[in-house]
């Protein structure tokens, strides 16, 4: 995208955000639904977005950031094209999802919550997703990979790399 397109895109996103705020403004506990919508719109909740919400709702930025940092579904980092989620629920954890997570970190050189510089992959650890029969489980966007071990990680990434190369 050119920079004008980018700006236009950002303006549209902000208009959507302001509309979402207007919709919820008078509700009790408006903050969390607005944060959800904001994350839908922007993909994540950067400083500028939280600041806008803070000014519009008259809630201190520190309080909003407190809420955002409390819930794991909110992110202050942009998400990748491929959003990797490693399940840390009890079943997955005892079957070695910690090692799998470490392997992803190593392969992608990013930490939990972060995104690779090329914007391709982001990595998160999540709570139980209810697929304990397949433990340990990893999801990439909506696709589920089950009964994994750390050695499978390279294969998963290679598959998506290949997909990108074809494009």
């Amino acid at each position: 995208m050119s920079s004008t397109e980018l700006n236009q895109n950002a303006t549209e996103q902000y208009q959507l955000l302001l509309a979402a705020i207007a919709r919820h403004r008078n509700d009790r506990g408006a903050l969390i639904p607005i944060l959800h919508e904001a994350q839908e719109i922007f993909g994540y909740l950067p400083l500028e977005v939280q600041r806008t919400i803070s000014e519009e709702l008259n809630i201190p930025l520190a309080e909003i950031f407190g809420v955002v940092s409390f819930y794991s579904q909110f992110s202050i980092y942009p998400k990748g094209k491929y959003r990797i989620n490693v399940c840390m629920g009890t079943a997955c954890y005892v079957k070695g999802s910690g090692d799998i997570l470490d392997k992803f970190k190593e392969r992608l050189s990013i930490d939990i919550g972060e995104c690779t510089e090329d914007g391709r992959y982001s990595l998160d650890a999540c709570r139980c997703i209810g697929a304990c029969g397949l433990a340990p489980v990893v999801t990439v966007n909506d696709e589920v990979f089950g009964k994994l071990n750390a050695d499978d990680v390279d294969g998963i990434i290679d598959r998506f790399e290949k997909l990108e190369d074809i494009k």
Partner: peptide, 8 residues
């Protein structure tokens, strides 16, 4: 209001 609890 410049400080608050963060993380969990």
């Amino acid at each position: 209001g410049v400080i608050d609890l963060v993380n969990r």
